[in-house]
Nucleic acid binder design. Sequence first.
DNA 1: CTGAATCCCTAACGATACTG
DNA 2: CAGTATCGTTAGGGATTCAG
Lengths: 142, 142
Amino acid sequence: MSATNTGVPSPLDTALPTPVPSGEHEQCPVTDVLRRIGDKWTVLVVVLLGQRPYRFNELHRGIEGISQRMLTRTLRGLEADGLVRREVFATVPPSVEYSLTPMGATLLEPLSALADWAIENQPAIAASRRATSARTNNLSAG
Amino acid sequence: MSATNTGVPSPLDTALPTPVPSGEHEQCPVTDVLRRIGDKWTVLVVVLLGQRPYRFNELHRGIEGISQRMLTRTLRGLEADGLVRREVFATVPPSVEYSLTPMGATLLEPLSALADWAIENQPAIAASRRATSARTNNLSAG
DNA sequence: CTGAATCCCTAACGATACTG
DNA sequence: CAGTATCGTTAGGGATTCAG
């Protein structure tokens, strides 16, 4: 199972030559993507759009806690990256439909792998965090 | 290839029942993990430690641009999550060795899938971004 | 060598109000 | 309905300094 250096061909090696890229402003694509999808809402939006196209307020209602501002920014970012398509229908109450592009849809697969890992390991992680904070409290208390 | 709703069993569906979890403070494990590994340095550290154990300053030199502060915080976070193990050797110049735990090593696999995707799609994403900013400039200029 | 502590800046985020 | 504009708060992150 160990993916350290035997099992996995590791495309990460390709992305991280030797000392780590990050020359100055040019980050490696992996980091770039991680920072994009690591924000607070992008994954939720992508996952919802993976089910079917959504309209703006539909997403707004579907993602509890998101503000219009952040929903707009998230969608704009995904659109700029070519992961989401935005279709405007000039109807009388104007409506806008968002959907994944083909490239956006392919993101669901690696995302699923990571989600799988997250779900599987979340209990262990949570337990580890609790143990750590308990240990920290002990140090404070004596 | 479409992973929209036919090909992939989508563990995301498990994580996102219908309207999206996020009751109030309790986020879904996927979002939680994404925010953890989506920060600026975690992935780089995990990838390096995936090759072999590293000492503190070795990591510091290996990851160009990281500050001691952030390296420490990143390692502490990973340690608290049970993904990284910290071993202190009480030698005369004290040395500390960091390595992936077994659970940490399993993270390399889904990370590779995502890295694969990132590397493969990075050109398209970059092109899309350029096209978008060019379009924005056109609106401003004309 | 391996950090912890402090200060400061910026980007991200959220709430609210306003517009086509 | 689908946004934009503005403002205030907070969290992430960097530089520097100090300590075991």
